[in-house]
Amino acid sequence: MAEMSVADALKLAIQEEMRRDETVFCLGEDVDIKGGMGGAFTVTKGLLDEFGPERVINTPIAEILIAGVCVGAGMTGMRPVADLQYGDFLFCMMDQLVNQAAKMCYMSGGKVHIPMVMRAPCGATNRGAQHAQSLESYFIHVPGLKVICPSTPYDAKGMMKQAIRDDNPVLVFEHKLLYGSSRKEKDAVRTSGEVPKEEYTIEFGKAAVRKEGTDVTIVANLLMSYRAQEAAKALESEGISCEVIDPRSLVPFDYETVERSVKKTGRLMVVHEDTYNGGWGAQVAAHFAEYCIFDLDAPVKIVAAYDTPIPFAAPMENFVIPSVDRIKEAARELAAF
């Protein structure tokens, strides 16, 4: 075992896969420039030295190109791993992701396939509205894409390796406050944790139960899984026992683990940093309304960012993004129902 940050775990995963398989390569703007940061958050720093400019490709600021290169290289046998710096820029490449990457396998009758990894740093971090969004929900709506959101060093490494080996396009949402990289972020969470030295991957569609409990099931991803755990810990003293589940991947989604938990608690809360309207929490709520309504003893609660662009000033940003207090309050309401 070795202790490391999420950023280093991601790097190690990419590095190991590049050593293992010559078709794996990295690309992105600033992905590794000498004297630069290694992407915006140090994940790819140092790869250029080991693998050279043929396999660590610094691109123009051209998102359509970056995604298109992934599609073209992926369909002809490569395994590209692209870094987007900020997930917000996914919108600049929507055609390539949604019309091209996601549909090419299907349109070809399953003959063409596109292994590609698109890394999208997300989360509100005092940078204003265009470097702040949590965009997972846009992409769970697209058949053909996989969407994952690892939140711990262990998951980051195992899931990144799995993403690189997957034969389909995988969007990886990485939270800026969870990287624990040398680029310090205000309000960053200390995520440093143990990562096994031996080879492992983590299958998608397997949620992780972060804390067991009996009264309320809280499903929360990325930064929110940490806040949910903090809220759950605090609520113990009030006699409310929360089970915290981190879905880890949104497509595929592990409904089974959540269903099992709700059978026990009868109460379900979903917490995400994405906005409320049409967020992935709504999909989870719809699933329970359609298939599991009689397991519920209370209405489903969704604690999400308010439906605004992300504001800059800290008091407003903190207000919009779900806080530990909002999660606690929602849990109290659920427990009291």
Binding site: V71, G72, A73, M78, Q96, N99, Q100, V112
Partner: peptide, 25 residues
């Protein structure tokens, strides 16, 4: 013959990726 593309201009960046692969391999 790569699966034809019905988004106008959509195949140009994909061609760059295909060409990159030809060279990388």
């Amino acid at each position: 013959a790569v699966t034809a593309n019905a988004i106008v201009g959509g195949n140009l960046p994909i061609a760059a990726g295909v060409a990159l692969r030809c060279r990388m391999m």
